[in-house]
């Protein structure tokens, strides 16, 4: 189990692994926003929580097709499917590796990017907490989408079309936590809902992902 996780992380950080691309994309989104809406820092402060969440979501989306596509192309996925590792465990580990290489850097970088968008001081902690709690859900849901489209050539666009509607609840509650935090309001309810979605997705979605992966491998 640990070996797969370590291998995926190692592959991500080595040359051509795409580590940091998501982070760079996040940065570009954040840099482009003021060009689009103007440099008014009061306006930026208002939209900062939403933009940061949207940026994190899109950078996450960007790397989803790598979860299974590379292992599919070089045949590793077939070999992993015959390994003594339940498919549910395999997809959970894949999701976790994706989160560690994509989600965690986004969470860690978000305060810096929040600075660029003049997020109010009291908004930093809720932003980081909401991203830390919400990005695992993005990875788990994204893994389901990646498992659905693994056999398809040029499935990237379809993957986005399938995954984005599934991201709606996570985005709503996650951005709500960040927004309420920035306005100094109570974040308890959306935070609890966000946690519910994340843990629910982590507990249940691997079964669906494993089922569709089995279908795609046969």
């Amino acid at each position: 189990m640990k070996a797969l996780l370590l291998r995926d992380i190692r592959l991500a950080v080595r040359a051509g692994g795409g580590f940091g691309l998501g982070l760079a994309f996040f940065l570009i989104v954040v840099v482009l926003v003021p060009f689009g809406v103007g440099p008014d820092s009061e306006l930026l402060a208002v939209i900062a929580p939403g933009i940061l969440w949207l940026g994190a979501l899109l950078s996450c989306l960007l790397s989803l097709d790598r979860i299974f596509a590379l292992d599919w192309e070089d045949g590793s996925l077939d070999l992993l499917a015959t390994a003594p590792l339940p498919m549910e465990g395999l997809v959970s580990l894949k999701a976790m590796a994706h989160w560690l290489t994509t989600g965690v850097p986004l969470v860690l970088a978000s305060p810096l990017f929040a600075l660029l968008l003049s997020l109010p001081v009291e908004g930093y902690l809720p932003l980081v907490i909401s991203l830390a709690l919400g990005t695992p859900a993005l990875s788990v849901i994204g893994t389901f989408g990646a498992a659905l489209t693994v056999g398809l050539k040029r499935g990237g666009l379809l993957l986005s079309l399938l995954v984005l509607p599934l991201y709606v609840p996570t985005l709503i509650f996650g951005a709500e936590v960040a927004r309420r935090g920035a306005e100094g309001l109570d974040t308890g309810v959306p935070l609890a809902m966000l946690a519910g979605i994340t843990f629910g997705a982590m507990a249940l979605l691997p079964f669906a992902s494993a089922a569709v992966l089995r279908v795609n491998l046969r």
């Binding site: 509650f173 709500e176 569709v212 279908v215």
Partner: peptide
């Protein structure tokens, strides 16, 4: 097979979205 599972998972998330949107 794939669309059936998507329909199942989608139903759960559509319901979740409904509540999330009401909250929002």
């Amino acid at each position: 097979d794939l669309t059936s599972v998507l329909c199942l998972v989608g139903s759960v998330f559509a319901l979740l979205s409904r509540y999330a949107v009401n909250f929002w």
